[in-house]
Design a binder for these strands. Sequence first.
DNA 1: GAAGCGTGGAG
DNA 2: TCTCCAAGCTT
Length: 371
Amino acid sequence: MSASSTTIIHGTIASDLLAWYDAHARVLPWRSPPGAPPPEPYRVWLSEVMLQQTTTAAAAPYYAKFIDRWPTVQALAAADEAEVMAAWAGLGYYSRARNLVAAARVVAERGGFPETEAGLRELPGVGAYIAAAVAAIAFGRRAVVVDANVERVVARLFAIGEPIPGARRAIRSSTDDVTPSGRAGDFAQAMMDLGATICTPRAPRCLLCPLAGSCRARQAGMPDNYPLKLPKKAKPSRAGTAFWIEREGAVWLVRRTRAGMLGGMRALPDDGWSARQDGSGKPPFAGRWRNAGAVRHVFTHCALTLSVRSIRATRDPAGEGEWWPVANLEGAGLPTLYAKAAARALDDAATQAETDRGDDQHHEAQVSPAV
DNA sequence: GAAGCGTGGAG
DNA sequence: TCTCCAAGCTT
């Protein structure tokens, strides 16, 4: 195939896709309509960080909360890191929140966002994808934007049979080939919308696809065979224990170390469980610990059964921590694992109180059902 | 380059 | 219930 005919075909892909996008673009809180002036770079960047490995449905309420609370990058730069971490609680991948604050401070200090991919790439938490996406969407620069959606669309368009991650080089090269010089942001978002709504991982809707006529996987009759992915490693199961220590309507919370799982987040004290090994089961101090049941939680690379034990304290436990009002537990910003454990402890306490009202016997050794 | 890092929804 | 995986980055 000659270079000129290649260009014509690839140009058709871009124009077909943009025409489809003009008619079918998703309406999203961080997005401008096709052809309209782009949102502020702050909004594009914030949304991209939240959208890493995260569905639009999950990110949307957090995006609204952050924009309401920190409307500008200067406001975010001036925020307490701890408050940003707490606001991020539940969204996962918590290093994103710490990098978010760090990057905001760099941007505020230098008086605005870098406008080039290379400049953006220097911000903490900004990698190849986000740098390209912000350059294209916020600044209208031609950039090769490759996320998991684009990987899938391009692997199918060109029937790239090599498995991920080895195929990434070829996918990037082909994406470069089909990326137009104009409407950079719309093109990137159109590719992602196509991947999210038409060219889906399973059961792609090829009958609705504006690129079906150009798609080599479609022509071969097996679009959902692309991209090929290698089998994943088995996920280990871990066991740990969290401790609910209550005193005068407050619960003792600690802050996890910045490195590792749930790094930097508020948490219940626990027995040192990790993705690599079980916890010791040992409570932080001796006493009449109550078994409040257990919760199950699945992380990216381990599945945890977290036992919950509770006690009423008469003084501060050893080490760093803070008494947090139970009535305002939502404001603590506990990651989901510990929010589940807290709910288990509170439910157990409520159940016990009801039992105690129902008969005169104590049930201090009551065993709650496993979850 | 591979492993570490959350969570919730879909099928 | 179980598997897959979503607008990835860092070390």
